Simulated scan of single mutants.
Amino acid sequence: MKKIVLFASGSGSNVENIVNFFQKNSSVEITAVFTNNPKAFVIERCAKLNIRCQVFSRKDFRENLSVLEELKAIKPDLIVLAGFLWLIPAEYVQAFPNKIINIHPALLPKYGGKGMYGQHVHEAVVDNQESESGITIHYVNEHYDEGNIIRQEKCLVSNSDTADDVATKVHALEYEYFPIAIKDLLEL
C-alpha cells in the first residue's frame, strides 16, 4: 500500500480531484491532508470525502516541527503540495528527499518564486503577453519553485485571454495531469 499525504492552503479542489482519482485504487491510500489555514474550504471537502484533515500553526510547522514528526510517523511514499503556499523548511526536504512534490500554475522557471501563486501568476502571464502557459509539477527543495521538474503541460494563451481565461485553462491541466504524475511517481 502506497501512502500519500496532501498539503493545501485553500479550497482544496486539487485535493478532491486527487482523492477521487485514487478512490478505486486499492494500492494507494490518501492518509491525511494537512492545512495551515483554519478557514480553508479544504477542511469541509475532507469531511465530505471522509479524509483526515489536520490544521497546524506556523509554530508547529517551523519551530517545534511537530508536523514533521507526524509525517515521519506516517511514513508517506509521497507528500503532495496541492495549493500549499508556505515554503517547505529544509528539515522536511532532508527527511523526505525526492518525496515532496508541488504543482505550479506556470511553466517554470517563468513566473515562479515567492508571491507567484494563483491569480498573480495568470495576471503576469497576460500582462507579459505570453503565447502559452501551463503547469509545472516539480520536486520541492528549500527554495520556492526551484526543485527539479518532473512534468510540464502547456496551453495556448491568446491575445484576447484574460487572467481568468488563463486560470481556467491551467486548472483543466492541473485536474488532468497532476493525478497521473502522482500515479507515475508511485509506480517508479
Score class of each variant (00 low, 15 high):
D60E: 07
P105G: 12
D60Y: 00
E70I: 05
G118W: 11
P97E: 07
F56L: 04
G113A: 10
H120P: 01
F56A: 00
D60S: 11
A82F: 11
F56T: 02
H104L: 09
I88M: 13
S57R: 09
N98E: 14
I100Q: 09
N128R: 13
K75N: 13
K99S: 15
A90V: 12
G118S: 04
V67R: 10
P97K: 10
T136H: 06
P105C: 11
K99R: 15
Q129R: 13
Y111Q: 05
E130F: 08
K75Y: 12
E130N: 04
G113S: 08
I103L: 13
L85F: 11
R52E: 03
E123S: 07
Y111M: 07
V67L: 12
N98R: 14
Q129K: 15
N128W: 10
E70Y: 05
N102Q: 05
K99A: 13
L107G: 01
E63W: 06
I74A: 00
W86R: 10
Q54G: 00
S66M: 13
E63P: 01
A106Q: 06
Q54I: 15
V93Y: 08
K110L: 15
P97Q: 10
E132P: 02
K59M: 05
V55M: 08
E123G: 00
Y111F: 15
E91T: 07
K110W: 12
V67P: 02
P97W: 11
I101D: 00
A95N: 04
P105D: 05
M116S: 04
S133K: 14
F56V: 04
E123Y: 04
E69R: 14
A90G: 12
K114H: 09
K75A: 15
L71W: 00
E63I: 15
N102S: 06
F61V: 01
K59V: 05
L68E: 00
E69D: 07
G134M: 12
E63T: 14
I100R: 09
P89T: 13
I100H: 11
L108N: 04
E63N: 09
V80P: 01
K110N: 13
G134S: 09
I88Q: 05
K59R: 15
P97R: 11
Q54N: 10
K59Y: 10
E69V: 05
I101L: 04
E63Y: 07
E132R: 14
G112R: 13
P89R: 12
V93L: 08
G112W: 09
I79D: 02
Y111A: 04
Q94S: 11
K72W: 01
D77W: 07
L78N: 04
E63K: 14
A95W: 01
N98I: 05
N128E: 07
S57K: 10
E130I: 01
K59I: 06
N128A: 11
D127A: 15
I88F: 07
S66W: 10
I88Y: 06
V80G: 01
K110D: 07
P97L: 14
A106V: 05
A124P: 00
F84Q: 02
V121L: 00
S131M: 14
I51S: 10
R58W: 10
Y111I: 07
E91N: 12
F61I: 03
G115D: 02
K75S: 14
S131Y: 08
Q54P: 00
V55Q: 12
L68Q: 02
P109M: 14
I135D: 06
P97Y: 11
S133I: 08
N102G: 06
